[in-house]
Amino acid sequence: MGNGILVYCEFENGSPRKTAYELLQKAVALGAGPVSALVIGGGDTSTLGANGATRVFQVDAPQVASYSTGAYVKALAAGIAASGAATVLAAASSPARDAFPRLSARIGAGFGVEVTDLRNEGGKIVGRRPVYAGKALVDVNILSAVGLFTVRPNSFPVAAASGGSAAVVAVDAGLTDADVDVKVIDRVAPANKAIDLTEADRIVSGGRSLKTKEQFDEVLRPLAAAIGATVGASRAAVDAGLAGHGEQVGQTGKVVNPSLYIAFGISGAIQHLAGMRTSRVIVAVNKDADAPIFQYATYGIVGDLFEIAPLLTAELRKHS
């Protein structure tokens, strides 16, 4: 039986992503034994201790320079074994969402997918997650010795780091080139490097009522830029070519969890709500006072978005 919590910390451009701090701090708050960090690849690990890790387990090898399922699952399994942790947390973003189910099958560890809450019940970590498009929530209880959870980004607050340092323990996962089962032959970064929707703290979204791609771009993108928000869209807007596939929010698009979600001309269909209903503050602008989105909106404006959006852009610019 393991002890403590291991947080798989994702890195970007050589530094931990914000989700690493979010999960390390939550792991400390859970009070279920020592908290350690797992790092795959190189990078600056110096801030992990200040955010709660007492040890940093690091697997670094040429085979993990870029992501492949085979090499990462092997590295994760080795890191978990070295740490002796009973619970492993990771942000529900691209690498963990791909690797964790396979890892679960490999090491026989129960897996709670995309939880939005975690609690310590007499030493056992229990996850809580939305199911059926967020229409219900359910507890995930781990029945195996080790439990894995992916956690939806922005589920927990991030406070200023409170000091502390961590010893780095190098872990040899015995990786060979044969472990790189799927090779990345090309990577295309987005032209404008906005924060990924699933991790964005502010989102400005538009529906089919924006009518053309030109209007969508002219009306919404400057508004989003004014507050450093990522742009999202309804499926109807995406299907009509107003926004890209990667910008769709909803059950068959991205599930987002920002502190601010502003919806322009989105009716609030259940499949759209499935993707954004956990947003902390929802603002809806719609000319139909009976649009379902208003039932979920923290603040609502009944009006024409083409009139409201430019005014709001100007007003928000004063604040930034």
Binding site: G112, P130, A136, L137, N141, L143
Partner: peptide, 10 residues
């Protein structure tokens, strides 16, 4: 390896 309980509406 996992069980579900306490299902409820948000």
């Amino acid at each position: 390896l996992v069980s579900f309980s306490n299902m409820g509406q948000p």
